[in-house]
Amino acid sequence: MIPVPREEFQRSLEDLRDGVREMGDLVLARVDDGLDALETADDKFARSVVHGDDEVNDRYLALEGDCIDLFALQQPVAGDLRLVAASFKILTDLERVGDLATNFGRYALATEDARHVDVDVVDVGRDARELVADALDAYAAGDAAACREVAARDDDVDALCQAASERVVRDLIEREAGEDPWRTEALMDDVSRLLLTIRDVERVADHGVNVAARTLYAVESDPELVY
């Protein structure tokens, strides 16, 4: 056969892949900032995290538009179709991770002095962040084995989150009754916020698994991880 590459189209696919990867880097930087804000409880920094989601959203909408253009104008099939379809879904996951980073900033802003010394949710958050980063590497490289490895690690993050939640609740139960009512209110706020933080960390990892699952579909047409 005579090679007749659709050069423009192939370039568009590479641009899409690069664009998703770049948006992923932006989102990872936001997660880093969110976790740093939680760690430092620096109000000013936390506020910048809360108000810094616009760039991710703009990037998300632009790339989503690119996917729709590719569907409408190039009518991709086979591996090309799977790449565009997977990218379309992955964009949504990345945008959500960006939202969760914003949440971290909000939680950091609301944190009182009574932080739980026993639970280092930021550490677990960094594990979840690494999981997303590795999923993005797998996407950029089209690496099916790495996708499966990323998905397997989600159980570890889940277990850490579960253990952290239990510790927070146990700590609450074991506190002595009859403390100052104002302190009790503050404690309840802190506990709720901590549990929400743990839940959001777990969700970051879940979105990382989604990125890996869609990538596996794109590479091998294997929906194994999607369900």
């Binding site: 056969m1 090679p3 007749v4 659709r6 099939v77 086979a78 047409s221």
Partner: peptide, 19 residues
């Protein structure tokens, strides 16, 4: 065939890489 062809040559043909 259009989502996941087994033959690489079919994939190349339907994606327009060869004609």
């Amino acid at each position: 065939i259009f989502e996941n062809p087994e033959s690489q040559r079919v994939e190349d043909y339907i994606t327009g890489k060869f004609g």
